[in-house]
Design a binder for these strands. Structure first.
Length: 646
DNA sequence: AGCACGCCGACT
DNA sequence: GTCGGCGTGCTC
């Protein structure tokens, strides 16, 4: 414990004007340590705030009388110097508050949990045997993956082993290798399903004391317990969702982010950091490796490889399953086809179902669907204006998405049929349809509500929404990739990236020799994907983004607040920085407006500083009403902007 | 956020 | 004369 007279404290406050360090005197009898939580009086009333001790010193710059620290909340040094340094860097990058970031990185205290931890008996670290290089990985690549200080985009191999995707197994072997050398490894995955799969695999090779899992649905005290475990001076393997990227482990050797293009890896709380960015900063700070791994790279990863900031490593991909694009254009002379499935896909699925499970991947539920003719598949259009027809409830008249004209009796201009079907509809409807198409076959439904991690190696139709696909023991015998058109035609910047990731994931779950059928799409994307050329597709997409000046070729900042404040700030920033431009304003709720700034990477740090200063200034001005808010690099704002612009 | 300081209207 | 309105400004 340090006995210096001045402690520098960062209050745990979300107020921008309090997001800075304050000096306090340390009374006799109070022991201060870096990273502990303290209570300090702030403001005229001396209201007690908790905060972190971020520095201790002999004197202060402040010319006024220092207030004294009220009390040390606990001796646990919950904020490590490394995390503080990383937090500063991420907060600056995101134009956000340091305390805001630490709210994500340091969980709330739980007294009982902490008492138990403080009086724990220390466990000894028994390193496991260093694992061997998995099949299908070149020795040089294995070496790169298992030493610290590298930046790698890793293209997983396909196939399922022991009920777990082989790529996941490979990654955990890499993590175990770091661990065996006395270094911690953090594995960040998008969601609960991936955690369950990895945990199952990890527990077979590493002891329970060595693993810390930040699983789904953790209570605050459970989260705190795991945080404390990570603080111990011994290596650990940490597994979890985006929360795991903040694990304050010592001896960090590896941070791996799996499927880093997944939108669930962006934090929904200020300052909205992405796990990939946090991983990069922490790795730089500690000398650890960053590995962005998966079956299909994120567009950011493609960019990093292109600019030679990351090296690329591929497992053996010769086992890529065959993909057959079978166009949806069901011809009238084909007769009725069950559940709108092309006959080739239908008969292949029927065959595969004799021996084992078949995966049917559908677009996520809750998506507002367009309508198609149930008999010929022609897109249903409004008779008044030609706009897309939709149906908000399950039944009732169809309405136009553009002019809201209601069509009570629709007739298809192609085949005169009066029956309409939702295209790219959610899993509920598809389960029903497919159940009828494959009579006598058990149907297993997997989506956000029906969480299934694995299915047995028995004949069954597994209908899963994109992102909720269970893993089949031994792999699926075939996969039907439905709704490709709807997935690809979403008005979203990451439609291609996300769609390819979903398809590649489905391929990874197939058993050796099984095939995938792309049923609702033809054209260049279908052809490229079928030939295994996903990567060139993404590179082309990246080139487009460069010429269109869209992320990740540029960085963006979303500004929200009262019109006058936002307008003034935009004018100011665009004048000061010649290479920043504004996409204009769109209205959000009430009187608030939103504006999006685009800027090259090299100017972004200076702009971020400027924006943050504006947020603090706005908070300090006593003006009532909505405050100015800044959000960096949230590409989804562009999707909303496209809808709301005028 | 809190809280105090400050400078203008209707009350014992 | 003074009690109290909430605009403005600061917090080690």
């Amino acid at each position: 414990m340090l006995k210096r007279p001045v402690a520098r404290v960062l209050p745990e406050s979300r107020l921008p004007q309090l997001d800075r360090e304050f000096d306090f005197s340390v009374p006799d009898g109070i022991d201060i340590a870096l990273g502990v939580r303290v209570k300090v009086p702030i403001g005229r009333g001396g209201t007690l705030h908790t905060g972190f001790v971020v520095d201790v010193a002999d004197d202060t710059e402040y010319d006024g009388e220092l207030s004294a620290i009220d009390q040390v909340v606990s001796p646990a040094q919950v904020l490590t110097p490394e995390m503080l340094a990383s937090a500063r860097q991420v907060a600056r990058r995101q134009a956000g508050g340091l305390a805001d970031f630490l709210r994500l990185a340091v969980p709330q205290r739980a007294v009982r949990v902490e008492k138990a931890w403080l009086s724990r008996e220390s466990t000894t670290f028994q390193p496991p045997a260093t694992p061997e290089c998995p099949d299908g990985l070149r020795a040089a690549d294995w070496e790169a993956l298992t030493e610290p200080g590298r930046r790698i985009v890793w293209h997983f191999r396909y196939g399922v082993r022991d009920g777990v995707p082989a790529g996941y197994d490979d990654l955990l072997t890499v993590a175990t290798s770091h661990f065996a050398e006395g270094r911690s490894a953090i594995v960040v995955v998008p969601d609960w399903r991936d955690i369950a799969l990895c945990e199952q695999s990890l527990r077979q090779s590493v002891g329970d004391d060595d693993i810390v899992v930040f699983g789904p649905d953790l209570t605050p005290s459970e989260t705190y317990a795991r945080h404390l475990l990570c603080l111990e001076d011994r290596p650990r393997i940490v597994l979890g969702s985006r929360r795991a990227v903040y694990a304050p482990v010592s001896h960090l050797g590896l941070i791996a982010v799996v499927s880093d293009g997944d939108e669930s890896l962006r934090e929904q709380l200020a300052p909205y950091p992405h796990s990939r960015d946090v991983a990069l900063v922490r790795a730089e700070q500690t000398g650890a490796s960053v590995v962005l791994a998966g079956f299909s790279p994120s567009i950011e990863a493609v960019r990093y490889v292109d600019m030679e900031y990351f090296e690329s490593v591929s497992s053996d991909r010769h086992t890529r399953p065959r993909v057959l694009p079978t166009s949806l254009s069901i011809r009238a002379d084909d007769g009725p086809t069950p559940a709108r499935l092309p006959s080739q896909a239908y008969s292949a699925a029927t065959d595969a179902l004799r021996n084992g499970p078949v995966l049917v991947q559908v677009f996520r539920a809750g998506f507002s669907p367009g309508l198609v003719c149930a008999d010929c598949g022609e897109r249903a259009r409004c008779v008044e204006c030609g706009g897309p027809l939709r149906r908000d409830s399950g039944s009732g008249p169809a309405g136009c998405g553009w002019c809201h004209h209601l069509t009570s009796r629709y007739q298809c201009p192609q085949c005169q049929s009066t029956r309409l079907l939702a295209s790219g509809h959610g899993v509920g409807r598809t389960v029903h349809e497919l159940g009828k198409a494959f009579p006598g076959v058990p149907v297993i439904q997997a989506d956000g509500q029906h969480r299934i991690v694995t299915v047995p190696a028995k004949p069954a139709l597994v209908v899963a929404t994109r992102g909720a696909e269970p893993v089949a023991e031994g792999g699926y015998h075939a996969a039907l990739l439905l709704d490709g058109q709807a997935m690809l035609q979403r008005a979203s910047l990451d439609a291609l990236e996300d769609t390819l990731a979903g398809w590649e994931w489905a391929l990874a779950l197939l058993r050796d020799g099984a095939q995938a059928f792309l049923t609702d799409l033809d054209g260049p994307v279908a052809t490229s994907f079928a030939s295994g050329a996903s990567y060139p597709l993404l590179r082309t997409e990246l080139q487009d983004r460069v010429s269109l000046r869209l992320p990740p070729a540029v960085r963006i900042a979303v500004l929200e607040g009262p019109r006058s404040v936002v307008d003034a700030l935009v004018t100011d920033v665009c004048t000061r920085f010649a290479d920043v431009d504004s996409l204009g304003t769109s209205r959000v709720e009430g009187t608030a407006v939103r504006n999006i700034l685009r800027m090259p990477y090299k100017t972004a740090p200076a702009v971020a500083e400027e924006l943050r200063a504006a947020v603090v200034r706005d908070a300090l001005s006593g003006r009532r009403g909505a405050r100015l808010r800044v959000k960096m690099d949230d590409a989804r704002a562009l999707d909303e902007f496209a809808e709301g612009a005028h």
